[in-house]
């Protein structure tokens, strides 16, 4: 029971509540909603327990599904993101990221931006692909993914800044 563990539980509940109460009701242009709840997966400690992350992301997505009546769509998207997270780290920060003790919640650098962008893109693509589930809506999927990605990306970066201002 260390402080990281408690912090993560707090983040889980807080992000889920914010998502359900505020961000699910934005409906920009009638159908675009941001999903900043995936910040939980992004901000999970780099060297943290991987199995724990997988299970936590699954539960996070499943709770979202219960609120959205969407079956297992969010669960799958979160799970895929959680599984691919180390690969995205490797891509964005170079091979030896584990030794550098990367911190996501810090000053915005191109590496951090790339990391968040790719993560959000993957999550949203899987999400809309499964949610719509019909190939006749292919352009619709791409369009929604792009709009939402933009929206979520801005919100993620803003909220990281708001909560953790650089101490220097």
């Amino acid at each position: 029971m260390n402080s990281t563990f408690i912090l993560n539980i707090f983040r889980f509940v807080a992000l889920l509540a914010l998502q359900v109460v505020v961000f699910n009701n934005i409906n920009f242009l009638g159908y675009v909603n941001p999903f900043p709840y995936i910040l939980f997966i992004l901000l999970y400690p780099v060297n943290g327990n991987r199995a724990g992350l997988l299970v936590a992301s699954f539960l996070l997505g499943l709770s979202m599904d219960m609120f959205c009546n969407s079956g297992g769509v969010h669960a799958t998207a979160c799970l895929v993101l959680a599984y691919l997270r180390p690969s995205i780290f490797k891509f964005a920060f170079g091979i030896s990221y584990e030794y550098q003790t990367v911190k996501i919640a810090d000053k915005l650098s191109p590496e951090r931006f790339t990391f968040i962008l790719i993560a959000v893109l993957i999550h949203h693509l899987v999400l809309y692909l499964l949610e719509i589930f019909r190939f006749s809506f292919f352009w619709e999927i791409l369009w929604r993914t792009l709009l939402s990605t933009l929206f979520t990306l801005i919100l993620c970066i803003v909220s990281i800044y708001l909560i953790k201002p650089s101490k220097r």
Binding site: L54, V55, F58, G61, M66, A75, Y83
Partner: peptide, 30 residues
């Protein structure tokens, strides 16, 4: 890790596919 991922993935995909068929999954619902 990989096995855990696959296990959870199968669960969530099953839920997704169930939700797209006519009668929906019994426990993921508002």
């Amino acid at each position: 890790i990989r096995l855990l991922f696959l296990l959870l993935l199968i669960t969530s995909l099953t839920l997704t596919i169930q939700s797209h068929s006519y009668h929906r999954s019994q426990f993921v619902s508002s």
